[in-house]
Write a protein that binds this DNA or RNA. Structure first.
Lengths: 253, 253
DNA sequence: CGACGCTTTGATTAGAATCAACTCGAGTGG
DNA sequence: CCACTCGAGTTGATTCTAATCAAAGCGTCG
């Protein structure tokens, strides 16, 4: 039962020891305040791929943060179309949708095995109202979520397929680097279909986009393994510039 | 100077007398608490069409609510493309972008002459931390903003032009009805270009969409004057149903 | 009255969706 | 150990939607 022991150790480690501390809700909070926050955090056993933290219509009892593993949040329209609202890497808060009416409007699905911290929202709000630094930090985290949504929006609107894909890879790389992983060589936690539903494209278009980037020498891709070979070029493509340095302005080939 | 007198009366009316009270930040807040909130509200003189409440990069000193008139919030990407993030009718909070980093990332532009209330954010947060009911309401309003953004997102992704336009008109009608105006006969506060940049379409496509809806007898439109003739059909179109009742499935005409 | 901005309409084109077939790899079970 | 299946991903052919380019109509405001 080697793994079980490891799990228990993992489960008992508090926010103060967590490697994500600086990126997560506790960022910038003093020792004493951190202790109070730490006390309401429930560290759950691992969730399996495909498991849901909550579903649309559930009362917003808690918010969650992945310690490791990734999640997607999905909104299903009345006609059954699934729209991926966001991907959530470790340290990024999950479940603040539903702040408006107290009920979740999306579902949060684990993309692989994951470990999460659960923070009962009532208690979180109660502590926040006593600790200005936590209130401020909570607002900041919410605001960052709004910013991510807006960036997502800008990515979807009036940008073409290849730009969206480049922007997606570029952004994902940055977020991975933020949490201390390699931003240039990683395994995508989500399927092509998830990416397509996030970017508002057909999954074939996503696949073609990846292939195109590979042909152009910008990335190397094999299934979910991605390596970014030319980060500068990727960034350029992401911001809507047409061609690459090898052929700055060619006629239609 | 008849108008001036009216303006002054207008300026002095507090939240307690405001017709928007139930829709605005004060909703559900008790008399005593309302008074505290009321004291920090600055009621400004009218702003002219095209004037800005704030610009990208400004520190987020205040949030705003229109008492009358409408605003748009616009994000400008590095390549100069303008994306309309949202439209704001009376009672809807403006300026919560920038919660993440303390600086605005969008600009808020008046679509016509408008009257706004300004709430200095520091003071608002300070009062909120003393009044749980206001804190709760503030979170709720923020949450509703997030929900609107998500709806906007869903509207943009994988819906076709005509659906987006129908959804836009349908949603606008509902919001107008909410603030006590007619939801079926109104004047659009924004240009076709603004709508296009909100919906992620070319302005010609928006114009064609309006014409198409008019041809189908769903709306009557003349410039910015819109009348919704068949609300049920509009709702149906908005939710992705193909044809209307008169011609359930016709070949290309 | 004329000019300008906003809107509508028309013709053409480009980009992505859709439909369809095929490849690859991981399990599964014979 | 190998054939088989199943799901994920890739690639190709075709179609269709909406962008783009272009021009004309309309209303308003000097």
């Amino acid at each position: 039962m080697e793994t079980n022991v490891v799990d228990l150790v993992q489960l008992r480690r508090g926010c103060a020891q967590c490697s994500l501390q600086q990126l997560c809700l506790p960022a910038g909070i003093g020792q004493d305040d951190l202790k109070q926050l730490d006390e309401i955090v429930r560290r759950k056993r691992p969730v399996a791929a495909g498991e849901r933290l909550f579903r649309p219509g559930d009362t917003m009892a808690s918010v969650y943060v992945a310690r490791d593993g990734a999640f997607k949040t999905v909104s299903t329209s009345e006609d059954g179309e699934e729209q991926v609202i966001g991907f959530h890497l470790p340290g990024e808060l999950i479940g603040l949708d539903g702040l408006g009416h107290g009920r979740h409007r999306v579902e949060a699905v684990a993309l692989g095995t994951a470990n999460v911290c659960e923070l009962p929202f009532e208690q979180l709000a109660a502590i926040a109202s006593r600790l200005p630094s936590l209130q401020q930090q909570l607002l900041r985290v919410i605001g960052q979520g709004v910013e991510r949504d807006q960036d997502h929006l800008s990515m979807l609107v009036r940008r073409q397929a290849n730009e969206r894909i480049a922007l997606f890879l570029h952004g994902l790389g940055e977020r991975l680097r933020n949490i201390g992983e390699s931003g240039s060589r990683f395994r995508l936690p989500m399927s092509r279909e998830d990416i397509a539903r996030f970017l508002g494209l057909a999954l074939e278009t996503v696949s073609r986009g990846f292939s195109r980037l590979q042909d152009d020498g910008v990335i190397a891709v094999a299934g979910r393994r991605v390596e970014i070979l030319d980060a500068a070029e990727l960034a350029r493509l992401a911001h809507g510039v047409e061609a690459g340095p090898p052929a700055p302005r060619r006629a239609r080939s």
